[in-house]
Simulated scan of single mutants.
Amino acid sequence: MRYLAVFGVALSLGCISAAEAPSNYQTYTGIRVDSDPVLLARYDRALSYCERESVSWRGSPDTRSLRYNTALRNCFYRRSFVDRGYYAYPATQVFDHFLDR
């Protein structure tokens, strides 16, 4: 049972992407970041802060690692930016119409 839990955690971390484009993010209230210049400026400040934080003490110097991606996404969540749903994780693109069949 423990092996399945460890496998599940590893698989969930493997599906994390670190999309840094503003069009992939929205606020907690559902407003897209690229729709408002004030939000876009706030996002740019958060991105510069979160990239530094994710490379240093919270994440990893390797920007392609899962630890870096997790730290970057965590920092964005703390700054009130969340992913926009369907295209936030690459696993949803793989199983796009799997259940439709």
Rank of each mutant, 00 (worst) to 15 (best):
G85L: 05
V38S: 13
E53Y: 09
S56C: 00
Y77L: 10
L11N: 08
S60L: 07
S35R: 13
D44S: 11
G59H: 02
Y49M: 04
L47P: 00
Y25N: 02
A46Q: 04
D34V: 06
W57V: 05
V55M: 09
D100S: 10
L40E: 05
R78L: 06
I31P: 00
R52Y: 06
P37L: 13
F98W: 13
D62W: 14
E20Q: 15
A46V: 07
L40Y: 09
F98M: 09
E53P: 00
V9G: 08
P61M: 12
T70R: 11
S35K: 13
Y87S: 11
L40G: 05
D34F: 02
Y49K: 11
A19M: 08
N74A: 07
T27L: 08
Y68M: 04
R78M: 06
R73H: 10
D44Q: 12
A46S: 14
P22Q: 12
T92Q: 04
N74E: 08
L39W: 06
L11K: 11
T29I: 12
P61Q: 14
R78N: 10
R58I: 03
N69M: 14
S17G: 11
V82K: 14
C15W: 14
R101D: 00
R64P: 00
D34I: 07
R78F: 03
S12G: 05
S54F: 00
S12Q: 10
V94A: 10
S54E: 01
D100P: 03
R45A: 12
T63C: 02
F95L: 14
C50G: 04
A71I: 02
R58N: 07
F95S: 13
R42L: 10
T63K: 14
E51Y: 06
R45P: 01
C75Q: 06
P61I: 12
I16G: 04
S23N: 15
S12N: 08
S54I: 00
V55D: 02
G59C: 02
E51L: 08
E53A: 06
A46D: 02
V55G: 02
S80F: 07
S56P: 00
R79H: 14
A91K: 10
D62K: 15
S35L: 06
L39V: 06
N74R: 12
Y68D: 01
T92D: 01
D96F: 01
L47V: 01
R58M: 07
L66E: 13
P37W: 05
Y49C: 00
A46L: 04
Y86C: 10
F76N: 03
C75K: 12
R42P: 04
S80A: 09
F76S: 05
Y89G: 05
A21Y: 13
C50M: 04
R78H: 12
R58D: 02
Q93T: 05
P22L: 08
L66R: 15
A91W: 08
R58C: 01
Y25E: 00
H97F: 11
L13E: 03
V38F: 10
A18R: 07
T70D: 02
A19D: 12
A41F: 01
V82R: 15
A21R: 15
S35Y: 03
I31N: 13
R42V: 05
F76K: 09
I31E: 13
L47G: 00
G59N: 02
E20C: 06
R58G: 00
V55K: 15
Q93E: 04
N69Q: 15
D34R: 15
